[in-house]
Design a binder for these strands. Structure first.
Length: 582
RNA sequence: CGGGGUGUGGCGCAGCUUGGUAGCGCACCCGCUUUGGGAGCGGGGGGCCGUGGGUUCAAAUCCCGCCACCCCGACCA
């Protein structure tokens, strides 16, 4: 394939577009790879579309290699399947909804679990048909509140989504493992740095889920990792639980006057005055935070979370735990006089208590731990209130913030926090969709069993952004060979016809050898402009045919390392091929 | 959805305070010169000034509404 710059549909920009902040967005627009077409939607220009198709090709090859089969659904879907799984409403405002001329409801697919499930139900009915993995590379639609960072978060984007179907849990484990292995190959081939982190496994299902995060400061997800190899999304981090302490010899609880101490800070100051030798810190206090849970059916439930006073509630972790319920600030203190703002204590909490308000505590609150906490009247706190002896709780919840230096749950050392962007997600769905849509097969005993499923996604357009984000310098893009829009960029400089003849011949030779060549054959364009464009566009190998030609040499340059070398004209093609093919 | 910022040829910006002919650089077209690091000179084409309303003899400019974009937050299998 020969791409001549004299005719290529391309215009590079000398200045950065003002509305692009992150490097990938800036460079992809400036280098003429993409163009904004709609809020959260981009047009792929010829070079950009070549990159896009290369990423797609890598994904497709590895999915095919692991035995998944490609299908393709419409993006425009009827309401009914999504009604059956309740997602027509549960998906909320992020779902693009529309009506046809008869007034029937349609949606633009944000993801396709329902359709895949129904397709398999339509055609298969026996355990002999399984296992099965199907995938598609599809345009997805999500009405994001705020599209941002160019290709990273659009309202229309391309995703590879696949789904596995198995008769039993062991089969699901195998399908999951196969996808995991395929994803590792894909991201390795794409040259994308990634961390596999445990993701939220769903509050009850016990289903397994991992995310492939690309570490980058512009990432939207926070994850933790330890030197010893533990990695998890913050939402999924488990707290190290201390050993319970025997009650023997623990002091009795005692109520103290602590006027004007509605905050942890003021409380600790007063506690230190009262008991200078006790060494009290914020961690000695038990903070009881009230929130309102809003369940999908609209019912509202107050919930109190008890946690050490030196930690804040992490709203993302909390929401991940209580999903699909949503969390709102609690405002109805007038309806609950037993909750004394700033002085709430566990004695009035719990489903068994008078208030009947559910009370969940941080895992650090184990039997025998002693706390300073509210006495349920203004200006008074209880000291030495012992967990398990003086108060109880309805359950434990992982809702406290995770901090750098916290221990990893597997003992592999202190945690550090980092940002990443989600490139892939593999998820053991289990039987949720199969049950909702009644996907069953006959087993070897002739009995109907519900199929168990996995769902697996890779953001294809997002991968293009991530690759650009992690492969550029101050001059422009630097594509990895596997996904570069061309293998080599041949630049002809000057006006000497001999230069263009030599560059032409070299380009044709390279194309004949199977390479894709981007050939800057523009006449009357100064060398400086061509060099700048070559660096901006970012082909991995740049060949300059110019003033060296008089001495019989051509210049080879590696875009990534900057190394350049003069080689004899006769050897140029072979040297380029060697460089391209590694 | 909350806070902040910005909307003027394809890109980057000035003009707005104090209402009166829409301007600069890049890019694009023509001519001549130039050709190894974003060339020079001359000539040219291209803009419902985001959008709707209002004030006014007159609005890019003043007032109100809306929309879009960017950033932070919220949201986001």
């Amino acid at each position: 394939m020969l791409l001549r710059m004299s005719t290529l549909f391309l215009r590079t920009l000398r200045d950065d577009p003002a509305d692009a902040e992150v490097p990938s967005h800036r460079l992809l627009v400036r280098a003429g790879y993409i163009r904004r077409a709609a809020p959260g939607g981009f047009t792929w220009l010829p070079l950009g579309f070549r990159v896009f198709r290369n990423v797609e090709r890598v994904v497709r090859e590895e999915m095919d290699a692991m035995g998944a089969q490609e299908v393709h659904f419409p993006a425009l879907l009827p309401r009914e399947p999504y009604e059956a799984t309740n997602r027509w409403t549960e998906y909320g405002p992020n779902l693009f909804r529309l009506k046809d001329r008869r007034g029937n409801d349609f949606l633009l697919g944000p993801t396709h679990e329902e359709m895949f499930t129904l397709l398999v139900k339509d055609l298969y009915g026996s355990y002999k048909d399984l296992p099965l993995s199907l995938y598609q590379i599809q345009t997805k639609y999500r009405d994001e509140a705020r599209p941002r960072a160019g290709l990273f978060r659009g309202r229309e984007f391309t995703m590879k989504d696949s789904y596995s179907f198995d008769v039993d849990d062991a089969g699901l484990d195998r399908s999951y493992a196969a996808h995991r292995a395929a994803y590792i190959k894909i991201f390795d081939r794409l040259g994308l740095d990634y961390v596999i982190v445990s993701a939220m496994s769903g509050a009850m299902g016990g289903s397994k889920s991992e995310e492939f995060l690309h570490p980058t400061p512009i990432g939207e997800d926070t994850f933790v990792r330890s030197a010893g190899g533990y990695a998890a999304n913050v939402e999924a981090v488990r707290t190290v639980v201390p050993e319970p302490i025997p009650f023997d010899g623990l002091p009795e609880a005692h109520v103290e006057d602590t006027p004007d101490t509605p905050t942890i800070e003021t409380l600790v100051a007063v506690a230190r005055q009262l008991f200078p030798d006790a060494g009290y810190t914020a961690a000695s206090t038990l903070k009881n935070v009230v929130v309102t849970l809003v369940h999908p059916d609209g019912t509202r439930e107050p919930l109190v979370i008890g946690l050490p006073g030196d930690r804040e509630v992490d709203e993302k972790r909390l929401e991940a735990q209580v999903a699909p319920a949503e969390v709102e600030p609690f405002t109805e203190f007038d309806k609950h006089p037993e909750l004394v703002k700033g002085y709430i204590g566990p004695q009035v909490l719990g489903e068994a208590s008078e208030s009947k308000i559910r009370y969940l505590v941080d895992p650090r609150v184990v039997p025998g731990t002693r706390w300073i906490t509210g006495a349920n009247e203004p200006g008074r706190h209880v000291f030495d209130l012992v967990a398990g002896r003086d108060f109880t709780w309805d359950g434990v919840i992982e809702a406290a913030e995770v901090r750098p230096g916290d221990p990893a749950p597997d003992g592999s050392g202190p945690l550090e926090l980092a940002r990443g962007v989600e490139m892939g997600h593999i998820f053991q769905l289990g039987r949720k969709y199969a049950e909702a849509l009644d996907l069953k097969v006959l087993d070897e005993n002739g009995k109907l069993v519900t199929v168990t499923m996995g769902s697996y996604g890779i953001g294809v357009s997002r991968a293009v952004a991530a690759i650009a984000e992690s492969n550029h310098d101050e001059l422009g893009l630097i594509w990895p060979r596997e996904i570069a829009p061309a293998d080599v960029h041949v630049v002809a400089t000057g006006k000497d016809p001999a230069v263009f003849e030599a560059a032409d011949a070299l380009s044709r030779e390279l194309v004949a050898a199977g390479l894709t060549v981007l050939y800057d054959d523009r006449p009357k364009v100064s060398p400086g402009v061509k060099f700048k464009d070559a660096e901006l566009l970012g082909m991995p190998t740049i060949v300059t045919v110019g003033r060296g030609l008089a001495e019989g040499t051509i210049e080879l340059r590696d875009r990534a390392t900057g190394e350049r070398e003069e080689v004899p004209v006769a050897e140029a093609a072979a040297r380029v091929l060697a460089a391209v093919r590694g």
